[in-house]
Amino acid sequence: MGTLASAVAFGVVLASVIAIAAMGFTIQFGLTNVLNLSYGGIMTVGGFAAYLVTSNGLSAWYGLVVGAAAGAIVTLVVGRGIFSAYAHRGAKVFEMMMVTLGLGLVIDYGLQAISHNNVYEFTVLQSAPIKLGPIILTPTQVIIVGIGLALYVGLEALLRMTKTGKALRAMAADPALARACGIRTRQIVVLTWLLSGALCGLAGVVYIINSQSVGYTSGELFLPLVIAAAILGGAGSPGGAVLASLLMGIVTQVVAAYGGSLYSTAAGFGVLVVVLLTRPSAVLTKQANEELTLA
């Protein structure tokens, strides 16, 4: 019983990391229709930015801010500078995905070149672990869950209670109609790049805080879990992404706790496969919807 409880607790911690990334991914994907495979690379950029800040003696909180800013800026630059160039030439979703995969290679191996292919240790100040019955968590892990929760609540509030959020949701639902209604879709796309990029950078920082090291493959190895969660939760739905992240995080950690540590990550993907087989409507979308909406 104790094993299960602590496995679930670790699962929730992992889920928080996945969820932060998956929320950004799903917003980006839902609004622009770009399945951005360079997202993992941009997460790593955020992670390295935070590493630079903290290795210069600032606290991990500054690392979070700088990581988020780095993610937002890089995402905006590639979104406005690169992706829209292809969109204007009429690239469809698949070609765009291949472009993001190529960009992912550029970012990943560029970081490998810059980081001299080293893995850097990243530790934040540790204090006494917190015990809740059989569950033992470090304060850092609790903070990670807190950050994830706060971001989810904040994002939902932004989407549901503000006018900008309403515009975002309108654009995700029907870009042409949103434009016809006078929503400035170009600005909304810029906002989407910034918002999703910030979440991406934050996720990168939180990920390296959790795994206590940063290397050029950090984001890339984590990206499949993020994509799986975003697809499972439904494109454009932060709530769905969070639920899917919880499911995948808990399954991964429970499998790991019961001896299958070799297969723990594969089990997380197994969830996606099972869903594909049993509930294909979760990922089946209209064929017609292959237009990119980058404005």
Partner: peptide
């Protein structure tokens, strides 16, 4: 499904 989903 969409080709990009399939690719992913």
């Amino acid at each position: 499904m969409r080709r990009d989903y399939q690719g992913a």
